[in-house]
């Protein structure tokens, strides 16, 4: 399995993919966190969907990672796209047959690819954390936010907790991307469907019937990144998110194991 992972990492480290993805992570992490402080007095709000996150909230121990937590969903979509593309491209390029001749165990191929993509995702999250927290520290004085509690024991604990939550969320989104890649065997189809569902369909469903949010995969995985939301409890989000990921993974892995490789 580790041979598969090292092989996959060689593909993931190509400059266009690696630098392009990390560039997007840096940009959006910086942007989301900066806006949290730059728009602190804006009547349109500085949080998700126009919510107001005031100085008292940002002064809490978790204030330093608010921006980081809010970028979690976006990182998840990036992970979904990367994982989906890396999986589905083996079908479109025809390279799956080469992989299977060199490593006939299909489960090892899947697990190896997942291990490598998890490493990629962790690098993304680490970079996002560094950029987000740095931006928050730099902009807090300008926004007149007290940062004393950010560096306390509780603050450090908040950083660690948020970091773990964002990683779980991002990897969850990534596995959904892998599932879509295995099912649709085309990067364009997998990514389009995934992004369409997460950004449009789920938002429409929640707008029409708000209690559907509790059972939708994207909403739950996003809520994990934020440690829970006012409408979605963390524990519930973990359970529902895990259920979607596990069932989807079992179905996709089963199909992958049994399907003939004819292209």
């Amino acid at each position: 399995m580790w041979h598969v992972a090292f092989s996959e990492l060689r593909k993931l480290r190509r400059p266009s993919l690696f630098l392009g993805t990390m560039g997007a992570v840096i940009f959006f992490s910086g942007l989301f966190s900066s806006l949290l402080f730059l728009l602190i007095d804006s009547p349109q709000g500085n949080g998700d969907r126009g919510r107001m996150i005031g100085r008292e909230i940002l002064a809490l121990p978790s204030g330093g990672v608010r921006g980081f937590a809010s970028v979690g969903s976006f990182l998840g979509i990036i992970a979904l796209c990367v994982f989906a593309a890396q999986t589905a491209q083996e079908y479109t390029y025809g390279t799956l047959r080469n992989l299977l001749v060199r490593q006939p165990s299909r489960m090892k191929i899947l697990l190896g690819k997942l291990a490598a993509m998890k490493i990629f995702a962790i690098i993304m999250v680490v970079l996002a954390a560094l950029v987000s927290i740095s931006a928050s520290i730099l902009l807090a004085p300008r926004a007149k936010v007290n940062t004393d509690l950010w560096f306390s024991a509780a603050g450090k604990s908040a950083i660690l907790e948020t970091f773990v939550n964002v990683i779980i969320s991002v990897i969850g989104f990534g596995i959904v991307g892998m599932i879509l890649g295995l099912l649709f065997r085309s990067p364009i189809s997998a990514i389009s469907l995934g992004v369409l569902w997460l950004l449009i369909v789920e938002n429409l469903l929640v707008a029409v019937k708000s209690n559907t949010e509790k059972w939708l995969p994207g909403s739950n995985l996003s809520a994990i990144a934020q440690g829970g939301t006012p409408t979605l409890e963390y524990k519930h989000a973990l359970i529902v998110g895990a259920a979607y990921v596990i069932v989807g993974a079992l179905v996709a892995a089963g199909l992958f194991k049994r399907r003939d490789v004819s292209n």
């Binding site: 041979h3 598969v4 090292f6 092989s7 060689r10 593909k11 190509r14 266009s16 993919l17 491209q89 390029y93 025809g94 390279t95 047959r97 080469n98 992989l99 001749v101 060199r102 490593q103």
Partner: peptide, 24 residues
């Protein structure tokens, strides 16, 4: 089988390195 299949964005050498890593 059925023609060469490799990753277009990688060089020939890198493509072989990917397979070499895979096969140990």
């Amino acid at each position: 089988i059925e023609g060469p299949a490799f990753y277009p964005a990688l060089s020939g050498k890198e493509n072989l390195n990917v397979l070499a890593a895979l096969g140990g």
